[in-house]
């Protein structure tokens, strides 16, 4: 993968553009959940009519992201930003699951509220925070500041990156 001239940039550009599609549309829905925008649009219009586009973007970024990871798994595994990104993805995923399994079940009770109930607002806020963290840490993976082969690093960094450092613990 890394050897081919255009495959990697193409893969990564697709990853970035798919993220712009899915995080972009997800954030629009979050703004509705927070009551910051689209107050006259039923919340269910977002979850019903816009979500398929969000999902499509997510699937493309997931597949391209996995391929990028697969091109150099060890480098990513030991990258601090990658590790934070995975945690942020888990947080975002849990939030999606909680929102759809609980809050959205009762959407008919608050569908037309200009400002949705507190639980929906919290889900919208967590979503914006988690996806923004995914985007920022994802971009930062490219920087090798905290890589294991750049020693010395503070103990905390080596711990967070899971580096095996010679002479450590003596």
């Amino acid at each position: 993968m890394l050897e081919s001239l255009y495959a990697w940039p193409l893969l990564e550009s697709t990853h970035v553009l798919a993220i712009a599609l899915f995080v972009g549309t997800a954030v629009m829905m979050d703004l509705r959940l927070l009551g910051f925008a689209f107050r006259k649009v039923p919340a269910s219009a977002f979850t019903g009519r816009l979500l398929p586009w969000t999902r499509a973007g997510f699937v493309v970024s997931l597949v391209t992201g996995l391929l990028v990871f697969y091109s150099n798994p060890l480098r990513y595994y030991h990258n601090v930003f990658f590790r934070i990104k995975v945690l942020a993805l888990i947080l975002a995923g849990l939030n999606v699951w909680l929102f759809h399994s609980r809050i959205h079940r009762r959407v008919s009770q608050w569908d037309l509220d200009p400002v949705p109930p507190r639980a929906a607002r919290v889900a919208g806020m967590v979503s914006i925070f988690a996806w923004a963290l995914v985007v920022v840490t994802g971009r930062m993976i490219a920087y090798n500041w905290f890589d294991c082969d750049l020693q010395p690093q503070p103990d905390f960094v080596n711990w967070a990156a899971g580096c095996v450092v010679e002479g450590a613990g003596e």
Binding site: V16, L17, I19, A20, L21, V23, G24, T25, A26, V27, M28, L50, W53, W131, A132, V135, V136, R139, M140
Partner: peptide, 17 residues
């Protein structure tokens, strides 16, 4: 650059809608 990317997401969403 990271903020530029966050802006891209916001732009992507508001253009696409």
């Amino acid at each position: 650059e990271a903020v530029h990317l966050l802006g891209l997401c916001l732009l992507g969403g508001s253009i696409l809608l």
